[in-house]
Simulated assay, not measured.
Amino acid sequence: MVHETLIAELREYIKKRYRLVSIPSIFKGTDKSLPPGTERGIRPNAFGEATELLASFVKQNQHEPFAFTLESLREEKGLKPAELYKRAWIDKRLYSKILTTGNYKPKKETAIAFGLALHLPITEFNGFLKTAGFTLSDSSISDLVIRFCIEHELWDIADVNALLFESGQKVLCRE
């Protein structure tokens, strides 16, 4: 059961952190007579160098697949598979699909539900979301609600959903 004081605290949390970001156009003031990329400091015919740099970057920043990270964290927390997917409100078939499909990419809500079910502190939670290709943003009220819940150790999906609903956001549900 979510209490009124918690809802009031959540409203203040969102007010402090929620901000809309305006992004200026990257194309303002570019000279159309220059070769593509030159206005950003790219030398013509530098494709080979760029490809090598990209390959190196990907190698250095690549993470373990989501399913591998999920299972590692489940084992580390001492949870049985059924405990984990039930806590996350995830169907057993979906859980099995995640584990058996090569590079399965879950929906953001699914990754969040698993992160909550694992009771991950915010830094671990962010790293876990990153393995699924996501992040929490200060420009999303829904993400702020999730961060609020993590910081206040509100792990129960029912409580999280109540706060999301109270904030006018989409609730976490089965994928």
Rank of each mutant, 00 (worst) to 15 (best):
L94T: 13
T5W: 14
P81A: 12
P106N: 02
P81K: 03
F148M: 08
E175S: 14
T101L: 10
L172A: 05
V145T: 03
G29P: 01
T5D: 15
R43K: 15
V58M: 11
T123L: 14
S142D: 11
I42F: 15
I150N: 07
A117P: 00
H3T: 14
A88W: 00
F114M: 03
A113K: 00
N126A: 13
G78K: 00
I150K: 06
D91N: 10
T5M: 14
W155V: 01
S167Y: 04
F114Y: 02
A132W: 00
V58T: 10
F125L: 04
K77R: 09
N126L: 09
E39D: 13
R147I: 14
M1K: 13
A162V: 00
E124M: 07
P24K: 12
P35I: 07
G115E: 04
E153L: 02
I7D: 13
K77I: 01
R93A: 14
L154I: 10
A117E: 01
T38V: 12
A113E: 00
C149I: 06
L144W: 01
F134H: 07
L116M: 04
A158F: 09
E4D: 15
V21Q: 09
K16F: 09
H119L: 10
A67N: 08
Y104L: 06
I141P: 03
P81W: 10
R74C: 06
F57Y: 13
K80E: 15
P81D: 10
E151F: 02
A55F: 05
R40Q: 12
I90C: 04
V171M: 15
D143F: 02
N126H: 05
I112K: 01
I42T: 08
E151V: 01
K77W: 06
P65G: 08
N103F: 09
P44C: 10
E71K: 02
R40M: 14
D143L: 10
A8R: 08
P121Q: 05
L70S: 01
I150Y: 06
W89K: 13
T30N: 14
A111D: 01
E4Y: 08
R40K: 12
S33K: 08
I23C: 07
L120Q: 00
L144N: 05
H3I: 12
T38H: 11
F165S: 15
S56M: 13
I14M: 06
L70C: 05
R11C: 11
E12A: 14
K59D: 15
L144Q: 02
I141N: 09
T69W: 03
R147T: 07
E151G: 03
K92W: 10
E151T: 05
D159A: 11
Y13Q: 06
N126I: 06
I122A: 09
L10V: 08
I42K: 11
T51H: 14
P106H: 01
G48R: 09
P36M: 07
S56Q: 15
C149G: 04
